[in-house]
């Protein structure tokens, strides 16, 4: 019953995450937008697992683990870059530009 509405909400949330990544320059806010996208996908998994069996919930469990690891490593990278450049503005972080 809730499958269609859930997928619609998930699509909107995922798109908002993409728009946030394109709109912002602050590295930490961009990380938060990535978390938003991961959550939209989790909502899809949960909505479909109501129809297709409990495996979807197990997958959400794994997605959350990967998201936690990604947040820890990503924020450590942000701290390391901030120490070099004194900013988290992605416009001024161009270490890989030749």
């Amino acid at each position: 019953m809730l499958l269609g509405p859930s997928l619609a909400v998930s699509a909107i949330l995922f798109t908002l995450g993409v728009v946030g990544v394109l709109l912002r320059r602050n590295a930490i806010v961009i990380f938060m937008c990535i978390e938003l996208m991961l959550n939209a996908v989790n909502l899809t998994f949960i909505a479909l697992s109501q129809q297709l069996g409990l495996d979807g919930q197990v997958f959400v469990f794994f997605v959350m683990t990967v998201a936690a690891a990604e947040a820890a490593v990503g924020l450590a990278i942000v701290i390391a870059v901030y120490r070099h450049k004194d900013t988290v503005n992605l416009q001024r972080i161009n270490l890989l530009r030749g």
Partner: peptide, 25 residues
């Protein structure tokens, strides 16, 4: 959507741990 355990984990891990990590940074 019949996933109460995942909802609890969502509050504990996401809203609790991960977002506190963000605010801490």
């Amino acid at each position: 959507l019949d996933a109460p355990f995942i909802a609890a984990i969502q509050v504990l891990v996401y809203a609790g741990a991960i977002m506190v990590l963000f605010l801490f940074v």
